[in-house]
């Protein structure tokens, strides 16, 4: 019988392989057509099965909770959300060139989850996490983070695209398309993050006695929210589109990363996310 941890450790390398097919596809001027996309779709499906299996296994252990309670589990879900949202984007835009920059993200997240010393076992839920809000809060937050990751990839590509003569870059979507992708991803991320903060506030009001207590993770999610709010407003201002907006979006993603990992260096109420 296959276990979830077997699936998840194998899938790490599969993501790297998918990344290579995207890379090769760019080098041979997309002669591989949709093969990388189909591979990514299959990988994401198996990844999803891995997550569901872990959920089922937690019931067999008698704990019975969604696999969203530890740093390891959040990384597993985060990498899944990135590739799932990216697939939707690919389906909408019919363009595969962003895949070279996006597919390394789930690979890196899974590799970090697999090779670091963090606890990978299925843990029982501590009292603070025993709430129906756990699933809504984690899913909305990480869907937001995932959309921001793709926004980050599109901004990097936007900044790289400057020199027009480079052969590899000739297949890259136009700057306008990249700006459009970035905007759409920021919108999805922003709405999801807002829902994440709101569900978090509702939960905190039940668990911690106050909907807002300036816990470092709360504060950093607010910082992220403020930066992306300014991205959305900057888009309406002349002279702020293009390069500046791409840089502001990249700063936004740095805030996401700090909200996710960096905050663990600071003391606070969210400490279970470090385990």
């Amino acid at each position: 019988m296959i276990t979830s941890s077997q699936i998840l450790s194998v899938i790490t390398f599969v993501y790297f392989f998918v990344f290579l097919t995207y890379l090769v596809n760019q080098l041979v001027k997309e002669r591989l057509s949709y093969i990388p996309s189909i591979l990514l779709l299959l990988t994401t499906l198996i990844h999803g099965i891995g997550i569901s299996l872990r959920w089922k296994e937690s019931y067999e252990l008698g704990y019975g909770h969604a696999p969203f309670s530890t740093l390891y589990e959040s990384l597993i879900f985060y990498s899944w959300a990135i590739s799932a949202i990216y697939l939707l984007l690919e389906w909408r835009t019919k363009s595969t060139s962003l895949g070279v920059l996006v597919t390394p993200l789930p690979f890196l997240a899974l590799a970090y989850a697999s090779f670091s010393k963090m606890n990978k076992g299925i843990q029982p839920l501590i009292p603070a996490l025993k709430s129906n809000w756990l699933i809504a809060h984690v899913i909305t937050c990480f869907v937001g983070y995932a959309a921001f990751a793709i926004s980050f990839a599109s901004c990097i590509l936007y900044l790289l695209r400057k020199e027009e003569k480079n052969r590899i870059k000739s297949l890259i979507p136009s700057k306008e398309v990249l700006e459009e992708i970035n905007y759409n991803m920021v919108v999805i991320g922003f709405v999801s993050l807002s829902l994440g903060i709101i569900t978090g506030a509702i939960w905190a009001n039940v668990a911690w006695g106050s909907y807002w207590s300036w816990d470092p993770k709360e504060t950093w999610s607010l910082i992220t929210w403020l930066v992306y709010a300014s991205v959305l407003h900057a888009r309406l201002t002349r002279g702020w589109r293009g390069r500046k907006l791409a840089i502001l979006s990249i700063i936004g993603f740095c805030c996401v990363i700090f909200t996710y990992f960096g905050v663990n260096l600071l003391p606070g109420l969210h400490s279970y996310a470090t385990m």
Binding site: P216, W220, L226, V227, S230, H233, T237, W240, L266
Partner: peptide
């Protein structure tokens, strides 16, 4: 709207210092 952007960024920096 420029004022909005400045206020949002300043508040973000302010919140950052607080952490």
């Amino acid at each position: 709207v420029k004022l909005t952007i400045i206020l949002l960024v300043v508040m973000a920096i302010f919140a950052l210092i607080g952490t």
